Structure formats: structure tokens, C-alpha cells
Amino acid sequence: MIPANTPAGAVASQLLAYFTSGDLAPGTRLPPERQLAQLLGTGRSAVREALAALEILGVVHVRPGSGTYLRASASELLPQTLSWGLMLGEQRVEDLLQIRAALEVLAAEIAATRAAPDNLAALRGHLAQMEEHQDDYADFVEADMLFHQEMAAASGNQTLSGVLQSVRALLRIWVDRSISAEGEARDAVAEHKRVLEALTAHDPAAAHAAMTSHMHTANQRIVDQEELPGPRSGQFPFSDVSAT
């Protein structure tokens, strides 16, 4: 992890600003560590640590014996700046849960007015997978995640989908651990069913109510975990975020 107030955190922030400026094309080879350190006025160890973190995030790719290369274009990197900023800063789980809840409710409301038959069919498929895997928590969480991604896609708002994905990525480690008993999985299935019923009926008010209720209980399951790792002390582990 890289706290924002360390030399490596400052270097990572500077590099991200440069990568999203539009001046670099995907596949561009970055200057060597020594040159970057001179350009940024910092030590090579800070540059090395910042690049290692950015590689974990998928921003750059290190080719042994060749160098470090930028993975994506500015347009592809920009939607991720929210998650990078949060990871480099000191945010708390409760803050992210509040943000996620508001965005999920908004996505549900919009999706209720725009969901196409293909979206609804995909949502039914993900819900069926959740029902089938109530005792297989890894598969259950995966189906749950896909349900929410499809719902956001059904809203037709790509910006909303991108921001939601960034927030979900930051919360993934805690979401993965929030379903720990069959009764909790059964409750979650019932909550998703109510959301899907509202979307199928194209009823924004019902979608708002169903998702608000689901977010309340889903967030409470996370908060009720006996011990939340990492962010309780104000930092996010890069390795956990990169899992999505």
C-alpha cells in the first residue's frame, strides 16, 4: 500500500496525472527509473515503489530486460482515476459504502426506465446462479457482482457504470467476506428478486425502494463483520483491489 503523504504516493499521483494528460499513447515505453527520479525530483526507491503499485493496478506493464510500458490510452485511464485517488488517499469503508448505496439506488431507478429484454434476461440468469450457489460463496459473490454490473449497464449511463465499478472494486475484499452463512445468502437472493421484479415492471419507485432496502442490509452485513482489514487504519491494499 502507498499512503498519499509519502514520496512514493506523491510520485504515483504525478505519474497518474501525466498518464491521463493525453500526451502518451498506449504501449509507450516510460523513461528508466533513474531518469524519472531526476525529472520528479525524488529518489529511485520512491519511483520504483510507485511503479510497482501502478503495475498491480494494471496501469503499466513491466517487461523484464525491456522496461516499463503504459498499458492504456488516456480515455481508458480516466474512468479509473476515482479509484486510484481513493486508493492513494485515506478513505474509510463506511464512506465508500454510503457512496455505493446512493449510486446503486440511482442505477436501479434509471434501469427501471431503460432496461431492455436482453438486460432483464441476463439479470434473471445471474439471479438463478445466486440461488443455485447459496452454499458456494465464491460463486455466489461472483453472480451477485454480475447482477449489479448488468443492472448498471441497463441504465445506459456509462459514466455511472464506470464510477460504480470503481467503488465496487475498492470494496471487493469486504463484499467477498460479507456473506458468511446460508441464511445471509438466502436473504440476499430475496432482496435481489425484489429489485428484479421492480425492473421487470419498469417501476422506478419500486426499484428505488427495493435497492434502498438491499443496500441497507448489504452494507450492514459488511459493517457487522468482526474485523475489517486494511481501511480501518485508513489505507487500501492495492493487491485486494486488483482482484476485480
Rank of each mutant, 00 (worst) to 15 (best):
P204E: 03
L88T: 07
L70W: 04
A152H: 04
A72Q: 09
V62D: 14
H133T: 06
G9V: 03
S239Y: 10
A154D: 05
L127V: 07
A53C: 13
I222F: 00
R172M: 15
E191L: 09
T28Q: 13
P237L: 14
L70N: 03
R177H: 06
Q134L: 12
S180F: 15
S180H: 15
L36A: 04
P79F: 07
L103N: 09
A143Q: 02
A128V: 04
N157D: 04
A243Q: 09
S75C: 09
M87R: 12
E49R: 05
D144V: 10
S233H: 15
L15F: 14
M1R: 06
Y18K: 00
G41P: 05
S13Y: 01
A72V: 09
A128C: 02
A12K: 09
L199D: 07
G27T: 02
S242Q: 09
F236H: 05
S178I: 10
L164F: 01
I56E: 02
P64Q: 10
A74E: 00
D118N: 13
S83N: 11
F140A: 07
S178R: 06
A74C: 02
Q14E: 12
G156S: 08
A152I: 04
A10D: 07
V167R: 05
T6D: 03
S180I: 02
A243L: 14
D135L: 13
G85M: 00
A153G: 09
A206T: 01
R63P: 02
A50N: 00
A46P: 11
E90Q: 13
S75M: 13
L77H: 00
A169D: 05
H208E: 03
Q235Y: 15
Q91F: 14
Q91K: 12
L160Q: 04
V189L: 06
R177A: 04
D240L: 15
G58M: 01
G156F: 14
N157Y: 01
P117Q: 08
T244D: 12
I179D: 06
G230S: 10
E104V: 06
F19N: 04
